[in-house]
């Protein structure tokens, strides 16, 4: 009966359970009557995007050393790249968009096919990671929004090994996999994340984004939200890890795996967006 309410910060009692999110769902044979009783559990929202053209090449380093100029060029490129496609050189230097100055949540679906936003974030071991460095090295980059206390994330690391399996599968194969925690509360704590990383035998780093700037720019609402960036700097896929948000499908379709395979084969990524699912990213509530 009441109009929309904003989620408040009143009485921010954090319950004990979130550290140990028991009863996390696991993939199992569908005992529930989705087809008859709960048709809404499917997420038939995948859309097909045309493959974007390759990016134009500009002088190396500008994007990083001259942010304002880079921003202007990136914006220009955002608008121009489809109209004036150019081939990347073998040296493979890319220009990315700069992170937006405003802290508004982008719409991930609308980013697919556009140029990725460059960022530098520090991981839980103190190492810095710059997106454009990996792309310039010819790598495909996978971003995985992460929260060690989110039951969905927990499930993909403990009930199944969805993420670790893909990291192992593609780790030697020109793919850089970066987990990103955009949480501003204690779920974004470096020690908690590093402890979890070791406990879950994660071979990939967890980058900390406490201001949420990177998460907001990429329109990440959920943990996990997945973004696959082609080596040319184009966002090739954004969305859920798979079509199993209900954890009910025995054989889910993994959109990230399909996107990486397509990029490695030099072919078109058929599904550029599929609805992400999971917990809300714990952005700052200011």
């Amino acid at each position: 009966m009441s109009p929309e309410r904003k989620l408040g910060t009143k009485n921010c009692r954090v319950s004990q359970e979130i550290d140990e999110p028991v009863l996390a769902p696991r993939a199992r044979k569908d005992p529930f009557q989705y087809s008859t009783l709960n048709p809404h559990m499917e997420y038939p929202m995948s859309t097909t995007r045309p493959r974007p053209s390759l990016l134009a090449v500009v002088a190396a380093g500008i994007a990083i050393s001259l942010p304002n100029l880079a921003n202007a060029q990136a914006q220009h490129q955002h608008e121009q790249k489809d109209a004036a496609p150019q081939r990347a050189h073998e040296t493979h230097e890319v220009t990315l968009a700069a992170l937006p100055a405003t802290s508004t949540l982008a719409t991930l679906e609308d980013l697919v096919g556009k140029t990725a936003f460059d960022f530098t974030l520090t991981d839980t071991e103190g190492n810095k990671h710059t997106l454009s460095d990996s792309l310039n090295a010819g790598k495909i980059v996978v971003l995985e929004w992460f929260n060690p206390t989110c039951p969905y994330v927990v499930s993909h690391y403990t009930k199944s090994s969805t993420m670790n399996d893909l990291v192992a599968k593609y780790g030697d194969d020109n793919v850089v996999w970066l987990a990103i925690n955009s949480g501003s509360d204690r779920t974004g704590d470096s020690t908690l994340n590093e402890t979890t990383r070791k406990k879950w035998n994660m071979a990939h780093p967890i980058l900390l984004d406490p201001t949420g700037a990177v998460g907001l720019a990429y329109g990440s609402k959920n943990t996990p939200t997945m973004v696959v960036i082609a080596a040319d700097g184009t966002i090739a896929y954004g969305g859920g890890i798979d079509n199993n948000g209900s954890f009910s499908k025995p054989d889910p379709t993994n959109y990230v795996e399909i996107a990486i395979d397509a990029l490695l084969a030099g072919s078109h990524v058929e599904t550029g967006f599929a609805k992400p699912y999971g917990c809300a990213v714990k952005y700052s509530r200011k």
Binding site: P3, E4, R5, K6, L7, T104, L105, G212, V281, Y283
Partner: peptide, 16 residues
């Protein structure tokens, strides 16, 4: 079939 009541809409400061 189950009959569902109408929900309430809530949003976070970022628009989730």
């Amino acid at each position: 079939d189950l009959l569902w009541p109408a929900p309430h809409r809530i949003s976070s400061p970022q628009g989730i």
